[in-house]
C-alpha cells in the first residue's frame, strides 16, 4: 500500500544508491498523499462551514484522532506481520473497566496504570499465543476475543458506570483531560508513540523480523527467525497501546462505561490501512498509522459539522478504505 516498489520502510538509507532523489520517495509515499487529502478536505470543509477551522474544533479533532491513532500504532506491527487484531475495541473495554475497578477501590493512580497496562498486554499475549501455537487465523481468534472481552467487561462491571476514582480522581482527569503547553496530553502520547514505533520498525531486529514474517513467513522461519515469539509480541504491543489509550480516554471522559470502545476496531484498522499498511502483510509505517487516524477523524468531524446525518459516517470511511486499497493496486500494476 505504501511506496512498496520504490522505498522499503527504513531502508532508504543507502548511499550506494545515490541516484534516486528523496523527493521521489516522498511523492510516492502514501503518508504524503494522506496528508494532502487532509489539507484539501480541511480547506473545502472550512469554506462550507467556517466553524471547522476554529481552534477549538481543530484541537477537538486532533484529540479524538489521538485515541484512535495510538491504537492504530499498536495495530501497525500486527498488520505488518500479516495478522489482524479486531479485538482492540473490546480490549479497550477490558482495560478501562480494569482501571475503573482499581481506582474505584481507592488505589493510587500508579497501581491503576500498572494494572491497566498488564491487562492490555495479557489480552494481546492471549491473542498472539493462540494464533501462533494453535495456528488459527488471526481474524477468527481476535473475533472470539472481541466477543469474550466485551462480555467480560459486562460481567465485571455488572452494568455499573464508574465515575468515582477515589484518591486518583483529580490525577486521572488531569492526565487524560489536561493540557501541557497548550495541547492535550494525549497528543504528546501519540507523538512519542510515533517516534518510538518508527525507531522500533526501522532500526531494530524486531521491526525487521515483523516485515520479514509479513513478506514471507516460511522464509523467515528458514532464516531462523523466532516467528512465534515475534508474532506474540506484536499482539502484546497492540494490547499495550490499547491500554495506554484506555488510560487517557478514561481520564478524558471522566467515567467508565462497559460499552467504552465498542466499534473502535473499524476506525483503527481503517486508519492503519489508509496510512499505508497492507492487509496482506509486509508493509506499514508508524507515521502512516497516525496520519491515517487524523484523516478518518477529519472525515467524521467534517460530516458532523457540515450537518450530514452521522449515519453516513461509516459510508465515507468505508469509501476511503476502498480508495486506499485501490491506490495500492494501481501502484503495483504500474510496476
Amino acid at each position: 500500500m505504501t511506496n512498496h516498489q520504490d522505498r522499503a520502510p527504513g531502508m532508504d538509507v543507502d548511499l550506494l544508491q545515490g541516484s534516486t532523489s528523496p523527493w521521489r520517495g516522498l511523492l510516492l509515499a502514501q503518508e504524503s498523499w494522506v496528508a494532502l487529502s487532509i489539507l484539501v478536505l480541511g480547506l473545502i470543509v472550512s469554506f462550507i462551514a467556517p466553524t471547522f477551522a476554529s481552534a477549538g474544533n481543530l484541537l477537538n479533532v486532533f484529540q479524538n484522532a489521538c485515541f484512535i491513532g495510538i491504537m492504530a500504532l499498536g495495530m501497525t506491527p500486527v498488520i505488518i506481520s500479516g495478522g489482524i487484531d479486531i479485538s482492540v475495541g473490546s480490549i479497550l473495554g477490558m482495560c478501562a473497566v480494569t482501571l475503573g475497578i482499581v481506582l474505584n477501590a481507592d488505589m493510587p493512580l500508579a497501581v491503576g496504570i500498572i494494572a491497566t497496562l498488564a491487562m492490555g498486554i495479557a489480552c494481546g499475549v492471549f491473542n498472539g499465543a493462540i494464533i501462533s501455537y494453535l495456528q488459527l487465523p488471526p481474524f477468527i481468534v481476535t473475533l472470539a476475543t472481541l466477543s469474550i472481552g466485551r462480555s467480560l467487561a459486562l460481567v465485571l462491571t455488572n452494568n455499573e458506570v464508574f465515575y468515582e476514582f477515589g484518591q486518583a480522581t483529580a490525577s486521572i482527569i488531569a492526565l487524560g483531560g489536561g493540557y501541557t503547553f497548550g495541547f492535550p496530553n494525549v497528543v504528546y502520547a501519540l507523538i512519542i508513540g510515533v517516534i518510538i514505533l518508527h525507531i522500533l520498525l526501522t532500526m531494530t531486529r524486531w521491526g525487521r523480523y515483523l516485515y520479514a514474517i509479513g513478506g514471507n513467513e516460511s522464509a523467515a522461519r528458514l532464516a531462523g527467525i523466532p516467528v512465534d515469539f515475534i508474532k506474540i509480541s506484536a499482539y502484546a504491543f497492540s494490547g499495550l497501546m490499547v491500554a495506554i489509550t484506555a488510560i487517557f480516554l478514561v481520564g478524558w471522559l471522566g467515567a467508565v462505561t462497559n460499552s467504552i470502545g465498542t466499534g473502535y476496531e473499524l476506525q483503527v484498522i481503517a486508519s492503519t490501512v489508509i496510512g499505508g499498511a497492507s492487509l496482506n502483510g509486509g508493509f506499514g509505517s508508524a507515521l502512516g498509522a497516525a496520519i491515517g487516524a487524523i484523516l478518518v477523524e477529519v472525515i467524521r468531524n467534517a460530516l458532523l459539522i457540515a450537518g450530514v446525518n452521522p449515519f453516513w459516517q461509516g459510508t465515507f470511511v468505508g469509501c476511503f478504505i476502498l480508495a486506499a486499497v485501490l491506490l495500492e493496486r494501481i501502484r503495483s500494476l504500474r510496476r
Binding site: 516460511s218 522464509a219 523467515a220 509486509g282
Partner: peptide, 24 residues
Amino acid sequence: VYQDLAICDNLTAAANVFLGREMM
C-alpha cells in the same frame, strides 16, 4: 538455496542476505 528461494519480496536485497543474521 531453497527451491522456492525463501526470499521476502518486501525487503531489500541486503535485508534478505542478512535475514536472521543482521549486522548491528
